[in-house]
Simulated scan of single mutants.
Amino acid sequence: MNRKPLVIALAVAAIAAGAWYFHSAAPEAPTEPVVQRPSAEPGVLRYPTAAPQLSQLKVDRAELAPVPMDEPLAARVAYDENATARLFAPIAGRVVEIHANIGDSVKAGEVLAVLDAPELGTAAADLAKAQADAQQKKSALERARSLFQAEVIARRDLETAQSEARQADAEVERARLRLANLSPVGGVAAGSQRYQLRAPIAGVVATRRINPAMEVRPDSDEPLFVVTDMSRLSVIVDVPERDLPIVTVGKSAQVEVSAYPQRSFAGKVVHVAPTLDPQTRRIQARVAVDNRDGLLKPEMYAKVGILADSKEELPKIPTGALLVEGVKNYVFVEREPGVFEKREVTLAVQTRSHAYVWSGVKGGDKVVSTGALLLNAELASSSR
């Protein structure tokens, strides 16, 4: 038997198997790190789409905004006193019903609470008694006139009847005014002593200091309810003496709060105090702000920037986007995905949070707000 072809076939198979094993066990080639592609333009960096550096960058669009005159001033949000009612009980009594809670929207004239007030019942009874007495004196006056015309009584008796009728009418008016003072909306029946505390304006119940069965008095230091129109709020600004010339009535203002760092609220200066606070050496100004969205809340801390009289708007960028080199300022602008250009900018006004740019950036440009230092280091290393 010829074994030579069989041996040759086995040898070929062994060689093929060994070659396949070593080829499959060979280590994969290391992946090359992704770096920015070289750019022929000075001051420009180009990154491929998958570059890890892009994940460390944050890009914001430069929006056109009114230019403030100076650094924002410390302020706090407060009620608009022209749209706020603080309700006290004009009569002593005990709480028997409560119809409103904090946060409830109420209409003008809506009942907030009901008090059991004996003095109210007394006032209603006094009015009914005075009206009955006035009616009696009026009838007596009519009889006296008839008798006087028939020459049965003397003129003195007629004049006495007239005087008593006038006194009775005056007593009715006094009792009516007293009851109207206690219950302006009326509707109190004789013998009733239930006083209805009503909202004088439409708004939201901001404060409630009343509980069931609580005794209330008209000389209380704190209001039972505070009803305010939350769509109209004021911002109280503490103005240093040096800034008094720029904070005047009618100036437009821009309000910012920490709860909404990316949003500002338009306002207008409506009042400036005539005197300084001797303790703080500040002048208090009031800025009216539109709060129809309900985002602002009373007692929030705020920053108020007084806007220049000019209606010109400039690109507004975060201060974190600025790179300061000597006396010049630079930013990185994203021209297209992965392409960043370093530009020199001229600033009009710089505050703690934003800068307003005269030149170098246009409205709508995409500016690197986070990671500008990283790009600057990459640009410096690539230019060596």
Rank of each mutant, 00 (worst) to 15 (best):
P48H: 08
A17Q: 04
V35C: 04
R46L: 04
Q36R: 14
A16Q: 08
R37Y: 05
P30Y: 06
I15G: 13
P38C: 03
P27E: 01
E28L: 09
A29F: 09
Y47R: 09
A16N: 06
A17V: 14
P27D: 09
H23S: 13
Y21H: 11
R46G: 01
G43M: 07
P27A: 00
F22Y: 15
T31K: 12
G43C: 03
A40F: 00
E32R: 15
H23F: 08
P33Y: 03
P48C: 04
P27M: 08
P38N: 04
A29Y: 04
P33D: 04
E32M: 14
A40D: 07
W20Q: 09
R37S: 11
Q36D: 00
G43F: 00
A29N: 03
P33C: 09
P48F: 06
V44I: 08
V44P: 02
T49F: 07
P33Q: 04
P42A: 13
E28G: 08
V35H: 10
A17W: 12
T49L: 08
R46D: 05
I15P: 03
V34G: 03
P30S: 06
F22A: 08
A29L: 12
Y21D: 01
V35S: 11
W20R: 07
W20K: 04
E32N: 10
Q36V: 02
S24C: 02
P27L: 01
S39P: 02
W20N: 02
P33R: 10
V44T: 03
V44D: 03
A26M: 12
L45E: 00
P38G: 00
P27C: 06
P48L: 09
W20I: 13
A26V: 02
F22R: 13
A25S: 15
W20A: 15
T49Q: 12
S24Q: 12
E32V: 11
Q36K: 07
F22N: 05
G18V: 14
Q36T: 00
P48I: 06
P42T: 09
A19F: 14
T31G: 01
E41Y: 01
A26F: 06
G18K: 00
V34Y: 01
A17N: 05
Q36S: 11
A26K: 14
G43L: 05
S39W: 10
F22V: 13
Y47N: 07
A29G: 00
E32H: 10
R37C: 02
Y47K: 10
E32L: 13
H23W: 12
I15C: 15
T49I: 10
V34I: 15
V44L: 07
R46C: 01
T31W: 01
A29D: 10
P30W: 09
A29R: 14
P42Q: 07
E28I: 00
T31R: 14
E28S: 11
P27W: 01
W20L: 15
H23I: 05
V34N: 06
P42Y: 02
A17S: 09
V35G: 14
V35D: 03
Y47T: 03
W20P: 00
V34F: 07
H23G: 09
E32F: 05
E28R: 12
A16P: 13
Y47C: 06
E41N: 05
A29M: 05
A40K: 10
E28M: 01
R46Y: 01
H23K: 11
T49P: 00
P42W: 02
P27I: 10
P30F: 02
A19I: 13
R37D: 03
V34P: 03
V35Q: 11
A19Q: 14
R37V: 08
V35I: 12
G43K: 03
P33G: 06
A26H: 14
